[in-house]
Computed example of a mutant assay.
Amino acid sequence: MESFQQRVQPWMLACFGAEIAADSTERNHRFLEESLELAQSCGCTAQEAHQLVDYVFGRAAGEKRQEAGGVMVTLAALCLAHGIDMHACGEEELDMIWERIDAIRAKHAGKPKIRA
């Protein structure tokens, strides 16, 4: 069986096309948006998020592979603390988004274009 990551790629290509799917800046912004929405849903405030942004960006950038591993570990820990099955949530989301490609494209078109 293909990994979850491998099964996300065909959806990304079907929904957004190769250019947007591979756009690292776009992927950074969408990941940050989703992680903030998760933290918000678990009780994190905007003030806390702003403090953490200042803390993180006040330090040197980390190494991508190590930071990706850290995201995986801390997501698992957050889900444990909140009684969430992260694997089941991922599978449910992937199933659902295949059915909502048009709506997701429309929502994406309305997102702010963030400039560096």
Results as ranks from 00 to 15, higher is better:
residue 4 F to M: 14
residue 4 F to P: 08
residue 5 Q to C: 05
residue 8 V to A: 02
residue 12 M to I: 01
residue 12 M to Y: 00
residue 14 A to T: 03
residue 19 E to M: 05
residue 20 I to L: 10
residue 22 A to F: 03
residue 23 D to G: 08
residue 24 S to M: 09
residue 28 N to C: 08
residue 29 H to D: 11
residue 31 F to P: 04
residue 31 F to K: 15
residue 33 E to M: 13
residue 35 S to V: 06
residue 38 L to T: 06
residue 39 A to L: 06
residue 40 Q to C: 10
residue 41 S to N: 11
residue 45 T to S: 15
residue 45 T to N: 04
residue 45 T to D: 11
residue 46 A to C: 07
residue 48 E to W: 04
residue 48 E to P: 01
residue 49 A to L: 07
residue 49 A to S: 11
residue 49 A to N: 00
residue 52 L to G: 03
residue 58 G to T: 11
residue 59 R to A: 13
residue 60 A to H: 13
residue 60 A to L: 15
residue 65 R to P: 00
residue 68 A to E: 07
residue 72 M to L: 14
residue 74 T to K: 00
residue 75 L to P: 00
residue 80 L to M: 09
residue 82 H to Y: 12
residue 83 G to Y: 07
residue 83 G to W: 02
residue 84 I to L: 13
residue 85 D to Q: 09
residue 86 M to P: 05
residue 88 A to I: 00
residue 88 A to P: 02
residue 89 C to Q: 15
residue 90 G to Q: 12
residue 91 E to A: 09
residue 92 E to T: 06
residue 97 I to A: 01
residue 100 R to W: 02
residue 106 A to W: 00
residue 107 K to C: 08
residue 109 A to H: 11
residue 109 A to P: 08
residue 109 A to L: 13
residue 110 G to D: 06
residue 113 K to C: 12
residue 115 R to Y: 13
